[in-house]
């Protein structure tokens, strides 16, 4: 299972181990963590919710996109759900490729796509309230009611 949603803390090394291959000359690892301050506002903790079955499918789709665009690449992604405290690890993405430039590019692709098409949401809890966050990338204007073109099929 290279693409997972986890209710437990993510073991970073276990995600990296999934992409080890003899053909690889590089593995890049992205670790998304819970930030305390966003534009000066202090977060107490976060809550992540996922539509798990669909989220796993969409993570798998991102994995296929990476294999098609960067031949020889292998990827693995685990995203955490539930309550997370400041500095906790929310997502780990590992990508291995024959050459290092591709490993960086493909890893970047994965996190950007997570923010577009994977049904996972975070709720910020502050001292003075709480709110579900959306529209991080300001890509919410889907006139047809869904992601179009490359978002669906890439």
């Amino acid at each position: 299972m290279n693409f997972e949603i986890s209710k437990e803390p993510i073991n970073i090394q276990s995600v990296i181990d999934k992409v080890i291959q003899r053909e690889a000359g590089a593995i890049t690892t992205f670790i998304g963590t819970v930030r305390e301050l966003t534009y000066g506002k202090k977060t107490l903790f976060l809550e992540y919710q996922a539509y798990e079955a669909m989220a796993v499918k969409k993570l798998e789709q991102i994995g296929r996109e990476i294999e098609e665009r960067w031949p020889g690449a292998k990827s693995a992604i685990t995203h955490r759900v539930g309550r997370l405290d400041i500095t906790d690890v929310a997502v780990v993405i590992a990508v291995s490729t024959p050459h290092r430039a591709d490993a960086y590019d493909a890893n970047r692709h994965a996190i950007e796509r997570i923010k577009e098409i994977v049904p996972i949401w975070k709720k910020e809890h502050w001292e003075d309230g709480e709110e579900w966050i959306g529209n991080q990338k300001e890509t919410l204007a889907y006139p047809g009611g869904k992601p179009e073109g490359k978002d669906l099929n890439e």
Binding site: Y48, K115, V118, Q136, K146
Partner: peptide, 23 residues
């Protein structure tokens, strides 16, 4: 993901997906 004009069939599971904020 489904477009606004798609017709729902009996037994389909529908999910309303607000703008996502994972990562």
């Amino acid at each position: 993901f489904a477009g606004n004009e798609e017709i729902i069939q009996d037994g389909d599971v529908i999910a309303f997906i607000p703008p996502v904020s994972g990562g």
